Simulated scan of single mutants.
Amino acid sequence: MNFFLAALGVLGVASSGPLIAATLGATTVSALAIAFWRNAIGAAVMATPTLGREPRQFGQVTAREFRWSLMAASALALHFGCFITSLQLTSVAAATALVCLQSAWIAIFQLFRGIRHRWPVLAGLGIACGGVAAITGFDMGSSPEALLGDLLAVAGGALAGLYTLAGGKARQTMTTGTYTTLCYGMCAAVVALLALFSGQPLVGFDGAGWLGIIAITICAQLVGHTAFNHLLATMSPLLVSMIILLEIPGAALLAAVFLSETLPAGTYAGLTLIMVGLAVVVIGQKGSRGAIGRGDLPAPPLVGLGTD
């Protein structure tokens, strides 16, 4: 079941970059409008079955769960702002690759929290990052505009790492429906404030623009993000973020097919390295008690975190 959800999640998030780039390039939709509506619609969809089955869950959210969810939502909102804007400035392949380096950021953040990973885990992470480099090559920062886009994507990756760690905490005690409803809803509220201060419209788009927003919401938000948020209950944030690396070759392939972007020369070699790195991390974490689950998270008391 976890394998199926991981594959579904990768397909969902891999469509994000190409769909966003196509929507921004062909319609009047603003970057923050995409972030707002995908989260607002996602929250409404996730809330419906949860309210129908267990409406009391929302009233039982603890203060600590709320704080972790708010941290995840804020990081997610800023992540979307950086990533979606970067897609307007640099290539889909470069932006996706840099933002997906959240696994490296997670390892760094965990290091500051006193968590030490076994050397096979670090080696696997290094191999996977080598796969990212193979895909992007040396075309990043080819112009001042592209360089700014690359820097925004790097920032987006760090924020995605925070979102993933915070989500992992929240998912220890919250159901998928409760957490995603709360996180997506608060993220939409933060994005609305950002749009208000930046002057970016959230409505008034043509039919093609709304169609793009709906496609992004279904594929990337409801399928991709929700699948990975569900996996956080049984997998470590680092392992989940490593699986998300598969989004990079997936996005590059989709951009080549649908947006006529040149497929990076190292796509297939990079995919191979990412898969090898992921396998090494899985094997390395099996040697650590509970690491495949949530062994890299603090011990009880349990609190609530979320991911990208």
Rank of each mutant, 00 (worst) to 15 (best):
G25D: 11
A26D: 13
A26C: 15
A26T: 15
A26K: 14
T27L: 09
T27K: 05
T27D: 10
T28N: 14
T28G: 14
T28E: 15
A31I: 07
L32K: 04
A33Q: 07
I34S: 02
I34V: 12
I34D: 05
A35I: 04
F36C: 06
W37M: 07
W37D: 06
W37V: 08
N39W: 05
N39L: 14
N39I: 05
A40Q: 05
I41E: 13
I41H: 09
I41T: 12
G42S: 11
A43Y: 03
V45Q: 07
V45F: 05
M46L: 15
M46H: 07
A47T: 13
T48A: 15
P49A: 12
P49R: 05
P49I: 05
T50D: 14
T50N: 11
T50L: 14
L51R: 03
G52H: 06
R53P: 06
E54N: 13
P55A: 10
R56L: 14
Q57M: 15
Q57P: 08
Q57K: 11
Q60R: 15
Q60I: 09
V61L: 08
V61C: 09
V61F: 01
A63D: 10
A63C: 14
R64H: 12
R64A: 12
R64S: 11
E65S: 13
F66S: 11
R67D: 10
S69L: 10
S69W: 00
L70Y: 01
L70S: 09
L70T: 09
L70N: 04
M71D: 10
A72N: 05
A75Y: 01
L76D: 01
L76Y: 00
L78P: 03
L78Q: 02
F80I: 09
G81K: 01
I84C: 05
T85E: 07
T85Y: 05
T85A: 13
T85P: 02
Q88A: 15
L89Y: 04
L89C: 09
L89T: 06
T90C: 03
V92T: 10
A93Y: 03
A95S: 11
L98F: 09
V99A: 06
L101E: 03
Q102P: 03
Q102I: 06
S103C: 15
S103G: 10
A104Q: 03
A104K: 00
A104L: 13
W105Y: 11
A107G: 07
A107K: 00
F112K: 06
R113L: 14
G114Y: 02
G114W: 04
G114L: 04
H117G: 02
R118E: 12
R118Q: 09
V121W: 00
V121L: 06
L122R: 05
L122K: 07
A123N: 08
L125K: 00
L125N: 02
G126T: 10
G126W: 00
G126C: 10
I127D: 04
C129I: 12
C129G: 07
